[in-house]
Amino acid sequence: MALPMLFFVLIGAISVAAAVGVVGSRQPVHSALFLLTNFVTLAVLYITLEAQFLAAIQVIIYAGGIVILILFVIMLLGSEEIDGDITNQSWTGYAGLLLGLFMLSAMAFNFLNAFGEMDANAAALQGGAPKPVGLALFTKYILPVELVGVLLLVALIGALLMGRFPSKRVS
């Protein structure tokens, strides 16, 4: 097998294993760590897909921000193993699993025939360097960028308001 293929299979296997770990762990902290592994493997895959900037951003935002936030919350709440007693056993989960498997096989079947070899368009991406991405972001897509900025501000204020201890009136 060629080296890139071997690399892809290795990283993909780690990624899938980590995803299974997220779902299967009993401890939320373990889940969070598996999630971190998954994010890092995805960053590596982005590099193989000529998206260096996104890989770095992936690590900064997801690994450096989101997972740490999740870990903080786990530590604030105390990570009891809550899944112990499922009070109302529901059939929806299993139906969902079945449908999910069906969806997965359908997607896999479709993808196997479509999207064969990659185009040799790698030059147009310039290795996913920050410069072209930034240029595109701040010229063609300037409105969405501004909107995302507003969204982040709103989220900040909302999180600040909701994260406080509930006032007397609520309880």
Binding site: V29, L33, F53, A55, A56, I60, A63, G64, A129, P130
Partner: peptide
Amino acid sequence: VNIGFLWILAIAGVESYGLILAGW
């Protein structure tokens, strides 16, 4: 790499994992 600065920022971001996990 042409993302040297981002690399530094990214690694600085994950630096706190060792401590936080050790503590937990």
